[in-house]
Amino acid sequence: MRKQARRQGRLWSIVMTIISVIYMYPIFMVLMNSLKVESAISTGTAFDLPTEETFAGLANYENAIGTQGFLASLFYTVFITVTSVCAILIFCSMFAWYITRVHTKVTKALYLLCAFSMVVPFQMVMFTLSSMADTLKLNTPWVLWVIYLGFGAGLAVFMFCGFMKSVPVDIEEASMIDGCNPLQTYFHIVLPLLRPTMISVAILEAMWIWNDYLLPTLILDINKYRTISMLIQFFRGSYGRVEMGPMMACIMLAILPIIIIYLIGQKYIIKGVVAGAVKG
């Protein structure tokens, strides 16, 4: 019996290994093509390994970084993601604490509005939101976090509220009686308790903002500022021949930071995803 189970386990290991290799193939294919010379990349030969004649070394990467402006895009994407996530974490957690601890009709309405905004598809507001951003001069990467704070508030507030409802108010009341004002209570008592939820929210929002394409495209001036998603779309959308080599290198460079961060923070990312799915 046990021998059979062990044999079955080994069989499954082999099957899963084969599936995993197939699963990773698309990324390997991009890596392979990013090392080929321009003329060797075409629709029919994407699966061919680079040979001595077609091997281009890191030329495509140099091209992507040098002339295609990959580094600028990376900078904008990192800047927008970091500022937006920080703003969301601080302001939305404060907002959530207020509306869970103060019970009025207004706070209840605000909570429902946040839940509602999570559901609404972006296409519903894309036109009016981009014209709003233009009017208020929010159309640069430096202040785009305001828009992300507004549009991403729903999920964050919803998750923070879900956690805060389970925290007893006794500690907070005690600190208020001891003479702390609400702001001190919030930063010394509530914020430390929120840390696990903060990590989950940060991961979910960062995954969304880093990869977001439509919102920055409609709001930012594509000739001045391009995030990584915009850069890759710009490659394909531009008229004339698409330069496949640098494009493959760009895709590879876009995936690389995500994979590195994933391998380092895997535990937190998976926890965050589970928490978000159960609450959302």
Binding site: F91, F95, L113, C114, S117, I147, F151
Partner: peptide, 14 residues
Amino acid sequence: IFLLPTLLAFLIGF
């Protein structure tokens, strides 16, 4: 302090 920042952004963004 607690409501206004998110509320303003929420008004503008949603």
